[in-house]
Amino acid sequence: MGKKLVMGIIILFLLVMGTLSIRSAGRSADTGSGAGKGKVGVIQIKGALTETGSESILSATGSDAEKIMEEIRKAAKRDDIKALVLRINSPGGTSVAAQEVGIELDRFRKTGKPVVTSMGDVCASGGYWVACSSDRIIANPSTLTGSIGVIMEFSNLEGLYGKIGIREEVIKSGAYKDIGSSTRQLTADERVMLQNLVNDSYSQFLDQVTRGRKGKMTREEVTNIADGRIISGRQGKELGLVDDLGNYYDALAIARKMAHLENDSEVEVLNKPGIWETLVADVSAQRLLPQQGWQLRY
């Protein structure tokens, strides 16, 4: 009898602990415990922001704009997601990728749900473009941000090709069809044409920042600092590019407040990287040559 009682108590204790641990494994301590009262969705943007297919499978170090857009759309349709926090740690990316994510965020905000950006180490250029499509921007004092501008780069390998005996023969339908070719210098006309292209994209960037910082910065103020300069989170706050200084949890708290959620409301990371992405991100080599060619990059 005594043996059975002792074993019964032990088994009961183990069952209780097992059940509790399974229940708590569903959420970690900092995700909040207010299940069922509405959630804050978190979307992480890490590394260069690019379009699907523009990166090789082994360079999964960036954020795929299409996947991010998909998560934003899903979050907009979900009734339990009441606010969105963008956790951005990105130096920028292609102009189209930033624009696409920005447009989708604007649509999300039209549903009445707030978007708060939390900047990590870096939230510059295209990363800042995306941040401008949020209601509040929170940065750490040492976050690197700014870098508002557009860049397009080409390599001229004409001299190298000459040394190793390579000469490219080009048959083209128009004067500008091989614009940006690595086998020759840009002509003056081509340079003007590409500069206009960059200027137009830059103007769009200024529009986005002016729209995103409406009431906080004038277009003139934006233009004054939109020369590609990198600034800290604290400088950004002084200039008006950032609303508040704080960390990820401050951003969560602000999002909860804006969405009228409880302080302990649940948090769900909507785009957690899969095992493959994380493993590849750790082992993949960085590019030896800078990314160049037909891309306007923020």
Binding site: M17, G18, S21, S24, R27, S28, A29, V42, K272
Partner: peptide
């Protein structure tokens, strides 16, 4: 197997929301 489940609860109770620990 039992310890695997309980350890999961212990570790996740101490972890943060944003990290990638959970799935690994």
């Amino acid at each position: 197997i039992f310890n695997l489940t309980v350890y999961r609860g212990i570790i996740l109770k101490q972890s943060y929301a944003i990290n990638d620990l959970e799935q690994f």
